[in-house]
Structure formats: structure tokens, C-alpha cells
Design a protein around this nucleic acid. Structure first.
Length: 239
DNA sequence: GCGACAG
DNA sequence: ATCTTGTCGC
């Protein structure tokens, strides 16, 4: 008998003792495992979007994953994982709060995606290990971080038209991501590699999946499911 | 010491 | 992230 097991690790934190200090040290070690070369299938077949929301005033963490056909963008599968929240939100330590639920939702999918879009930063992070990079390292899969706000880094002014971009750099002048205008005159997205994707490919891949909204489809759909946009809108109108 | 600070 | 109504602009 060969037990069918999850292709994803149950514990993405190794022997972490639960303290913020040890979490930061672990990030530095894992950041060394991030690969910034393109290592994607020649032809992408399945892409996924992951996002996390909260219920019960934050007591419950709700991770959502949406699997899409890379060509038609049709939804192939969806997955939801709801588990008790264990950590508070601490800037720079987001993955320690959200990854457990994300991995559980990913494991419930019927297939492994070729590329994952995560809500948050990849290497555009103080220790180069935002949630997208952390997810990429522990799963070994290609990942891209798509955030709505800058965590760290500076940049030159950005043009107002769709497709325009400008590099996000750290103090040393090193490029850690890209500010991308996904639509005319909307707040730019902050895109950065998570793992197995290059700095130049990341924004190109994001634009490839942007349709009529600011967020690329994988991220947008996962966001809807994680934040229960449907339920809330219906409940609010109905009664 | 002061300001900044993904979701 | 979440709690929340109407409102300004493309």
C-alpha cells in the first residue's frame, strides 16, 4: 500500500518556536532558497490564485484557492479552508499567519497548478520573503506576489496608462519588484517574484491575465471567495 | 529615537 | 483583513 499524501508540506515553518524573532531568522534562511530564474512550463496549463479572508471577528482564517485554465481562464476548481487563527497580523510576518490555511486549501485541489498568484508580496519584502516567496519555497512551485500596497522600497513616478511600469528598489538600489499600472488611471499593483519567476516575467505574466479589472483574474476570483463578496452583497440587499 | 508598516 | 452609505468619476 502506498498512502496518497499531499504534495504540499503540512508544516511550512520547520522547527519555528513561535516567536517573532525566530520567524525573522527563518525568513532569512528560506530567502536563500528563492530562485529568480524563469522555471515555468513552456506552455502554462493551470494557474491558481490564492487569498485569505477572516470570519468571526478574525478568529477564523479563511483561505481560498481558485484553479483556472491558463488559456480560457475558465474556473477548473475551487477550494476553501477554514481554520482557527493562531497569529495576529504583524507587518513582515504575514505568511506565518496565513500560510497554514493556504496550504490546506491548495492540498484539496484536484490538480497541481503550474503557477500561483498570491495576494501579497514576493521578494519585495524586508528579508526578501513575503508570503508569495515563502509559499513558492515550501511548495517548490512558481509563484508571483501581487500586492495593492508597498511594504518597503522606493520608486520613480509611474505613467497613468495601462501597462506602464516602474521598478521598485531597495535602499541599495537593488530591484525587488515592479509597480504595474494594470488599467488606465487606477492605483498600481506591486508585483514581485515569489519563486521560479524572474523580475521581468512577473509583471508580464500578471498583465497576461488582467481582463477588465484591476486585479488579474486568478487573484480577483480568489479574493471574491476569500472575502465572501457574493454572500455579503446578497445578505446586504436581501435583509 | 522616529517613522513606516503586505493582509 | 474587517466594520459600513452614499457618492464622485470614467
Amino acid at each position: 500500500m502506498t498512502a496518497t499524501r499531499s504534495p504540499y508540506p503540512a508544516n511550512p515553518f520547520g522547527d519555528w518556536d513561535g516567536t517573532p524573532g525566530a520567524a525573522r531568522e527563518l525568513q532569512k534562511r528560506l530567502a536563500e532558497q528563492v530562485r529568480l530564474e524563469d522555471e515555468l512550463p513552456a506552455q502554462l496549463r493551470l494557474i491558481a490564485g490564492v487569498d485569505v479572508g477572516f470570519e468571526e471577528g478574525g478568529a477564523l482564517t479563511r483561505a481560498a484557492v481558485v484553479l483556472l485554465d491558463a488559456d480560457s481562464l475558465e474556473v477548473v476548481a475551487q477550494s476553501l479552508a477554514r481554520i482557527p487563527t493562531t497569529m495576529p497580523y504583524v507587518p513582515g510576518l504575514l505568511s506565518f499567519r496565513e500560510l497554514p490555511a493556504v496550504l490546506q486549501a491548495l492540498a484539496a485541489l484536484p490538480a497541481i497548478p503550474d503557477l500561483i498568484f498570491a495576494d501579497g508580496h514576493g521578494i519585495a519584502h524586508p528579508r526578501r520573503l513575503g508570503i508569495a516567496a515563502h509559499l513558492g519555497v515550501v511548495t517548490g512551485l512558481p509563484t508571483i506576489g501581487v500586492a495593492k500596497k508597498i511594504l518597503c522600497g522606493d520608486h520613480e513616478p509611474l505613467g497613468e496608462l495601462r501597462g506602464e511600469q516602474v521598478p521598485l528598489r531597495d535602499r541599495a538600489g537593488e530591484t525587488i519588484g515592479t509597480l504595474l499600472r494594470s488599467k488606465d488611471r487606477v492605483r498600481p499593483l506591486i508585483v514581485s517574484p515569489g519563486n521560479r519567476v524572474s523580475l521581468t516575467s512577473a509583471p508580464q505574466l500578471v498583465m497576461r491575465y488582467v481582463t477588465r479589472y484591476r486585479l488579474p483574474e486568478p487573484t480577483r476570483l480568489a479574493d471574491r471567495l476569500a472575502s465572501r463578496r457574493e454572500e455579503k452583497a446578497a445578505a446586504r440587499r436581501g435583509g
